[in-house]
């Protein structure tokens, strides 16, 4: 607060954190656009598929890697999005802070769980192989 506010193109530059969080959220969302098209195409491939097909699909390293990337990027985006939502609707600082911490922990667990189970699915024995 000591320095005079700085401006760039007549827009005030943030004094503390800058726009880092917002940028990460947008980059994650941008990355999720092609990934969600890929998820939709995967849905067409795997809908109603039997176990052998699913195991073989996860056995392909490209599919496993893209699944893990999708999961991690999505949960990163979701944690930032939920942070914004909580900040909008929870006025009391203490409960706001608690809720954000809880949601962050939940998203870290979900991301870690996703990677764990994707690796587990990728290492399933494939029938006939």
């Amino acid at each position: 607060m000591s320095a005079a506010p700085k401006f760039k193109n007549n827009v005030k530059i943030s004094e503390r954190h800058g726009a880092g969080e917002w940028k990460i959220e947008k980059l994650a969302l941008a990355a999720l656009m092609p990934l969600s098209i890929w998820v939709a195409s995967t849905g067409l491939t795997l809908a109603g598929a039997d176990f052998a097909t699913v195991a073989a699909w996860f056995g392909n390293p490209l599919n496993a890697a893209l699944s893990a990337i999708t999961a991690v990027v999505f949960f990163l985006f979701a944690s930032l999005a939920w942070k914004v939502i909580i900040e909008d609707y929870v006025p009391a600082p203490s409960s706001r802070k608690t809720l954000i911490t809880v949601s962050n922990i939940a998203f870290v667990l979900l991301a870690a769980g996703s990677v764990f189970f994707i690796v587990r699915a990728a290492s399933l024995p494939i029938a006939g192989a």
Partner: peptide
Amino acid sequence: RVTIGAATVGAALMLGWIATASSG
């Protein structure tokens, strides 16, 4: 916003799907 909330639930369901598939 509603979509983000629903997608969070959906992602948890997908995680359940992968976990089940990886169990055999």
